[in-house]
Each structure stands twice: as C-alpha cells, then as structure tokens.
C-alpha cells in the first residue's frame, strides 16, 4: 500500500469506514490474526487432550466402583454448571494470569462431557461380546483395549466432538486473563469499536470449530474401518 493510495481512498477498516467485512484488514494484520488463531488452537487442543487424559482413568474408576460413579458424575456436573467467566477467576489465585488458568478451566469442562461419553460408550458394549472375549482367554486389560474400547469408540468420539467444539467456543472467554486466542481480538474489537477485527475473529472461531470437527470425523472413520464396509 502506498501512502498516496491510503490518502485517496481510506481502507475499509479505517475509523471512517469501519466495514464488517474487510480483506485489507486481514492482509494487513495477517501476522496478528495467525498468532491469535494458533494460540486459540493450541489452548483448545491442550485442554481437550488434558481433559481426555483425566477422563479415562476417572471413567474406568467409576465403572469399577459404582458407588464412586454418582459422586464423580455429581462433581463434574457441578463444575460444568459454573460459568466460564466465573471459573477462570476462581482458578487465578492458584495458577495466576497465565494460559494454564484457561487450559485447566477448559479441561474441566471437557472432562465432564468426556467422562459421561466414555461411561456410556463402555456401557453400550454388548454383554455377549464381553463374555466371548473372556471365553477366548482375554484378561481385563486385553478385554478393554481389544474389545470394549473399539466398540465404545463411536460414542466416545461423539463426546470428543462435542467437547472439542464447545472448547473452541469457550476459549474466547479466556480473554479475561488475556489468553483467549481469537477472543483477545474480539475483546479488542469491542473496546475499540473495530468491526472488521471483531467479525473476522468471530468467523475464524466458527471455522476453527468446524475444521476440528471434520478432523475428528475423519479420525473416527480411520479408527473404525469396519463401520465403512457395512454399506458397500
């Protein structure tokens, strides 16, 4: 962009024009947008993976000890009830104004959805399958890894998709502690009445959610090839 051009024709994101959709903004602030998107993606992925890592042992524990199940479900539901804008501040005294605060908060939300879907997935495995696997001499670990988990995968993946998509949306609230990925741009857009920034960041959030959902669907296809052959 030359100085002359800028003087003749104010860019679509100047204060005077303030368009919602503005490609000049996207190209001029490309680095800022890419950085925010990457931070968003990173926070989301780390949170969901952390949630999954905690959810698995919890779900297995809940299944083994039915008395613990209702307690685990009640506690996770309670956490889920707390709004994100309240959960992050409550974590700040322990983790400070860092990305860790956002990640732990989001992981707790993801955890609630994942524990339930893992439990439901394992419950959906037919009893006959378990019996025949035991009859074939499978131990407990083998039974879980080779028979139960593959069959529970569709339900678990459904939960993982729900958790991932909601985590992408909730990450924006992390802008309260300045680690909100695209949420930081949205917050700045509101404060400075910058429409192009606000609109671009909002659209990117939804695009990111849809993209991650598609990735998970493809991953599920790849992990459960037997569900594909049935149709052909």
């Amino acid at each position: 962009m030359t100085l002359l051009g800028a003087a003749d024709d104010p860019s679509c994101y100047s204060r005077l024009v303030n368009d919602w959709v503005c490609m000049d903004y996207v190209s001029d602030r490309q680095q800022e947008i890419v950085d925010a998107t990457l931070e968003h993606l990173q926070i989301t992925v780390v949170s969901v993976v952390l949630g999954l890592l905690i959810a698995f042992p919890l779900a297995l524990l809940a299944r083994r000890l039915p008395r613990l199940e209702s307690a685990i479900l009640a506690i996770t539901t309670g956490i889920y009830t707390v709004p994100s804008l309240a959960l992050f501040p409550l974590l700040v005294p322990f983790t400070g104004l860092t990305a860790t605060t956002v990640i732990i908060g989001l992981a707790l939300y993801a955890l609630t959805i994942l524990v339930r879907s893992i439990l439901e997935g394992l419950r959906s495995v037919p009893e006959e399958v378990r019996e025949s696997a035991t009859g074939l001499g499978y131990g407990r670990g083998q039974l879980l890894l080779k028979a139960e988990l593959p069959l529970a995968l569709p339900v678990i993946m459904a939960g993982l998709r729900v958790a991932t998509v909601s985590t992408v949306a909730l990450t924006t609230v992390g802008s309260l502690v300045a680690y909100g990925g695209l949420g930081n741009l949205i917050k700045d857009g509101v404060l400075t009445n910058f429409r192009a920034e606000l609109f671009t960041a909002s659209v990117l959030c939804v695009v990111l959610a849809v993209l991650l959902d598609v990735v998970l669907v493809l991953l599920q296809r790849f992990l459960t090839p037997w569900t594909r052959g049935a149709r052909a």
């Binding site: 992408v168 949306a169 802008s175 949205i186 606000l198 960041a201 909002s202 959610a209």
Partner: peptide, 18 residues
C-alpha cells in the same frame, strides 16, 4: 444444538453490541 455449540457466546454478544 451442534450449531449452537460452535458459536462462541462471547462473539455473538460482541457482534450484537457493536
């Protein structure tokens, strides 16, 4: 429901306010 989950509440609020 799937669509509702994908839209950040913060973003929609921000768009409506601006």
């Amino acid at each position: 429901s799937n669509v509702g989950r994908a839209i950040p509440t913060f973003a929609l609020l921000a768009l409506l306010v601006v």
